[in-house]
Design a protein around this nucleic acid. Structure first.
Lengths: 176, 176
DNA sequence: AATTTTATGTCAGCCTTGTTGACATATCTC
DNA sequence: GAGATATGTCAACAAGGCTGACATAAAATT
């Protein structure tokens, strides 16, 4: 299709060229940088988790429970997108080792409201700080607006149907 | 500690306040957005890989081999940071199913130079385009400089000792 | 009050993908 | 020829996903 329909050709030739290139040429740089960045980003916590006999799955659970005291099982499953059997395996260990506490719901007594114990909060904070250090180092050389651009980019990588949910989780229900 | 030691208080109150906040307050937003974005970013390829009986491990191998024809086993191990046994399991399958070809090195006949077959390139490209679509969608609303800021950010998240190596891999040996 | 739905827990077994350790082979280097 | 290097392979194990089936308590519905 080298010869476009005349009506389309003169209209915005640069943009259509751009579009063609983008359609043909994968964004290898961002794909690969994302892979390498994530690989190293999760490697910091790994070392510490090892000392506790925990893995990444435990980290994810502990993180979200610590961040949102009173989180229910159903909400956690929705965040992690794993099965309840997978969740239960690591959650049970976190409870047994006293990093998370499971309380029966008050309004709905079928629910379990999850809370991090002081020990749990300590570990979660320790790991979050480790990752924060890496983030701050990466941000240190950047312009002030960069952080906003990066947040926006990451948010828009998320499935559109889940974006509002994530916004809610990350920035809180207050911030519209 | 509401009352600071007088000697410290007057000295750069804004900056020290900033630093304190950063030291105390984890970057929960970027930590969590990174998690959710990565979760969805890898989910696109997963669906297609399933049809071929492949998993994420196969994807990673195929991607880098397709991107760098003639890649050796040692180089691939260095990129993926897994053991040769883990690599061999998936590589063997990719070769058996004719997505990758292993040629004996010419200069050093001990080496295996890996190449994607036409079928392999097709699949790799198909997956890369899927991910590119998501990336472009996320970038579409952003300022033109945003892409540069994001690349820079991701690059700086990578371990400093590996950064030059990754730069080399992603942007090519030519670009300094 | 009886029934159905919902939230959670649990058992059993399977798959992928990572790990370690040991050992084999071909080839290159000294 | 001896030793180092690049790769392949066998066996066993662990983490963390998955499915399917079934159990229980509490809420919701009829």
């Amino acid at each position: 299709m080298p010869d476009a329909i005349p009506a389309f050709k003169p209209q915005a030739p640069e943009q259509s060229l751009d579009k063609d290139i983008l359609a043909e040429m994968p964004a290898y740089d961002l794909i690969e940088l994302f892979f390498f960045a994530y690989r190293d980003f999760v490697s910091d916590p790994d070392r510490i988790l090892d000392e506790y006999g925990f893995g990444r799955a435990h980290h994810r659970v502990l993180h979200f429970v610590s961040r949102q005291p009173g989180l229910t099982i159903a909400e956690l499953l929705d965040i992690l997108r794993i099965t309840k059997q997978s969740l239960n395996r690591v959650l049970k260990e976190l409870i047994e080792k006293n990093f998370i506490e499971s309380r029966t719901g008050t309004a709905d007594r079928r629910q379990r409201l999850l809370h991090a114990t002081p020990q749990g909060h300590d570990l979660a904070l320790k790991l979050a700080k480790l990752q924060t250090r890496r983030i701050m180092r990466a941000l240190s050389g950047a312009e002030p607006q960069a952080k906003e651009a990066i947040s926006q980019y990451l948010l828009c990588l998320i499935d559109p149907d889940d974006r509002e949910h994530v916004k809610h989780l990350v920035f809180g229900p207050d911030k519209t």
